[in-house]
């Protein structure tokens, strides 16, 4: 596009572009640094004892103190066990419900199909927080309070809604020819599900899994209200309790925060595609 400009003109233009690009990189780096700074500070401070925090507030932790992590792990390890259990159970159930129901909604026509699907979609518009009080009373009546079930079962119901919608949209988009071929060979509904739908749905399975994991890991009010037994606290709630116990031991607190962040960080690092799809998963669904 610069082919028209003569030789002497090209040089200043190139320098201008170079300056422009460099300043863009600088501004964006500054923005990234601002965004990352709290976490960087958290990591550095998690290796300091109280004296080091006073003496070298911004500096590197020299010498490094690992005691904070030992103490933090000692106080929080049950929270991790609980959360992993809840995450595993919720994800497994949500995937099962989502795949099966999504498959039925996407590939079969039956009386009340649209009505039933609207019933599911309607729940997307309702903030779960609005039904918190009656759900709490229900859980109390079912004698589920302060058990692991109160963390798992309502979270399955809450996460299944979006999962069903995402699976339905995805399975609808699978090429019809595959289903035709399967029918020609006499495959039954369950066989089609087992040999075509499930394997092809791998990307959406990844997205829904990550979406559910992030949701469960971040869920706050529900575990806060329903669980008082320390060993049943999830990480999100446990950290709050931990915060109360160690109010001014900043090094210990930051070690606890870092530990609480590790699982999601690992997922982000190795599955960033699914992680970001999971974060924006609700978005693509409400877009439809």
């Amino acid at each position: 596009m610069t082919s028209l400009s003569s030789q002497p003109l090209r040089r200043p233009r190139q320098t201008r572009v170079k300056i422009e690009q460099t300043s863009l990189v600088l501004i964006l780096s500054l923005m990234a640094f601002l965004g990352l700074f709290p976490y960087l500070f958290m990591l550095l401070t998690s290796f300091k004892n109280n004296q080091q925090i006073v003496d070298s507030y911004w500096g590197l932790p020299i010498p490094i103190h690992f005691e904070n992590y030992v103490a933090a792990w000692d106080q929080t390890r049950y929270y991790f066990l609980t959360t992993f259990t809840v995450v595993a159970a919720t994800v497994a159930a949500v995937l099962l419900l989502g795949l099966l129901s999504g498959f039925i909604f996407a590939r079969f026509s039956f009386l009340g199909r649209n009505f039933l699907f609207t019933l599911v979609g309607l729940l997307l518009m309702v903030p779960s927080i609005a039904a918190l009080i009656p759900l709490f009373v229900l859980s109390k009546d079912l004698k589920m309070l302060n058990t692991i079930w109160v963390l798992i079962i309502p979270s399955i119901a809450g996460n299944a809604v979006l999962a069903v919608i995402l699976f339905k949209n995805f399975i609808e988009a699978i090429q019809q020819e595959l289903f035709d071929a399967a029918q020609v060979f006499g495959a039954s509904g369950p066989q089609i599900f087992r040999y075509i739908v499930a394997p092809l749905s791998f990307p959406i399975i990844g997205t829904v899994s990550l979406l559910t994991m992030i949701n469960v890991w971040n869920d706050f009010f529900w575990p806060l209200l329903t669980v008082t037994d320390d060993k049943l606290r999830t990480v999100a709630i446990g950290i709050q309790f931990f915060q109360g116990q160690n109010a001014t031991d900043y090094g210990g607190l930051m070690a606890g925060y870092t530990l609480a962040s590790l699982p999601l960080l690992v997922l982000f690092t190795f599955l960033s595609k699914y992680f970001l799809a999971g974060i924006s998963g609700g978005l693509t669904a409400s877009d439809k």
């Binding site: 976490y39 958290m42 890991w217 990480v235 999100a236 925060y257 962040s261 960080l265 997922l267 970001l276």
Partner: peptide, 8 residues
């Protein structure tokens, strides 16, 4: 930063 838990 999106990779960090909300509570952290």
């Amino acid at each position: 930063p999106l990779a960090f838990p909300v509570i952290v």
